[in-house]
Simulated assay, not measured.
Amino acid sequence: MDAQPTTPTRPTVVDGLAGAIGNTPLIRLRRASAATGCEILGKAEFMQPGGSVKDRAGLGIIQDAEARGQLTPGEPGIVVEGTAGNTGIGLTLVANARGYKSIIVVPRTQSREKLDFLRMIGADLRLVDPKPLRDPGHYVNTSRRIAEELQAQGERVIWANQFGNLANAAIHEATTGPEIWDQTGGRIDAFTCACGTGGTLAGVARALKARNPKVRIVLADPMGSGLYSWIKTGEVKAEGSSITEGIGQASAAPGNLEHGRDCIDDALQVDDPTALAQIFDLQQHEGISLGGSAGVNVAAAVALAKRMGPGHTIVTILCDGGARYQSKIFNPEFLREKGLPVPSWLA
């Protein structure tokens, strides 16, 4: 029997965009829970104003810059960032609400939907070719260079630096983690999610471990990323490849993730077919449309539940919605080209 609607905990009226970020519901994933005998719960970050968990990072980074006096609401300022897309969206929306401009540098290989959204909300979008992190043309290095050039010209500008800026993890420690704890009534046995910057995992991990050191924290990693190896061996060593966007690092652990390393207990690897199976199943049978990183997260939660055994409560992050990847993971031609399964309703 489906659960009855409950009274929302969010205030009826919130103060602007910032007030609308956070306090997302936990969704019980019925089929994953039934298959494992565990309670598998997804934090519905796709319900954020900008459509992803990265709204929190955008707010946290800009609020931190304001607290440091680097930016002042209502006065001219520029936010510069290199991103796979979602952090750029979160930063741009918060910047708009505060009266700042935004310059967002994105690899041109990211989904068309995210690029179109960034243009739509007014970001100064700069597309670059995909390069390894050591290359000066990498999107992160390009964004840092743009920020430095603007600073040299006397502009009031910040380089958001989501990978190394600990304000990213801090807002998850202050909001996402405590929300999960309160929503589960403290009855949580494990938390798992994938990492791009590591801010979500590190921040939630620190918040949960502070409340109960026995909560198990597990990094979920797509193929092609070296973070699984980093947790297991201390060495960042990547194997394989993945179509997922915005998660996984092939060359180095980001600063936010290193900040939370002492709270991470284990890691799991998830391949594309397994992640896609979860995405397609959730959409077809539970009406929840999600992007690729959420598929990795749910698949990891299922794998973790099977390891831990029935009766446990496991929480993960439903990072963003499927509409942001329509041209890729919901595109039969793209999937066939990659040798990946096509859902029956698209075949």
Rank of each mutant, 00 (worst) to 15 (best):
A84P: 01
E155N: 14
I317G: 06
S225H: 07
L219T: 00
C195E: 04
A277N: 11
I62D: 03
A299C: 11
A303P: 02
E149M: 10
A299S: 13
E337L: 05
V157T: 14
P178G: 11
G291K: 03
T274S: 13
H172C: 06
R56V: 14
I40D: 09
L29N: 10
L201P: 02
A167F: 04
G177R: 03
G85A: 06
G177Q: 01
G246N: 03
T87N: 08
R30D: 13
R30K: 14
V53N: 08
K131W: 04
T244Y: 00
P273W: 10
T175V: 13
T36C: 10
A20W: 02
T24A: 06
V157P: 00
G69F: 08
A57W: 05
A160M: 05
D55A: 10
F117L: 15
G309P: 09
A160S: 14
G50S: 09
L276M: 04
S293H: 07
P213I: 01
I243C: 00
H138A: 11
D129H: 08
R216K: 15
T184C: 13
A205W: 03
S344M: 08
P107E: 13
Y228T: 03
G16K: 02
L93V: 06
A210S: 15
V53Y: 06
A190E: 05
I329D: 00
P11Y: 12
S241D: 14
I247Q: 08
N297E: 07
N168K: 11
A97Y: 01
L257N: 05
G22F: 05
W181P: 02
R156E: 07
Q183D: 12
N165I: 11
R30Q: 14
T233L: 12
R156L: 03
A294Y: 01
P130E: 13
E39L: 11
D182R: 15
T175L: 10
L71E: 11
G322F: 02
D182L: 14
T9R: 14
P130A: 14
P11C: 06
G82P: 07
K54N: 07
P11H: 11
A65F: 10
Q48T: 12
K54Y: 04
C38P: 03
Q278S: 07
I40A: 01
L290F: 03
L26G: 03
N331M: 08
A323I: 12
Q4T: 13
G185P: 09
Q183A: 13
S289H: 11
G50D: 06
G203Y: 05
V53C: 09
I188P: 08
V80E: 00
I264M: 06
D271W: 02
A190N: 05
G88L: 05
L268I: 07
L227N: 04
L17Q: 10
G255P: 08
R336L: 09
N212I: 07
E148D: 15
G199Q: 05
S289I: 13
Q326V: 13
I188H: 03
S111M: 06
I89K: 06
G224S: 08
P222W: 10
A169R: 12
E239Y: 10
G50F: 02
E45A: 01
T142A: 12
P73N: 12
I158V: 15
P49V: 14
V215R: 05
P132C: 04
A174L: 14
E258Q: 15
A205D: 02
P73W: 12
G203S: 07
G37F: 11
H312R: 15
R98E: 13
V157E: 00
G88K: 09
I89Y: 08
S242H: 01
A123K: 05
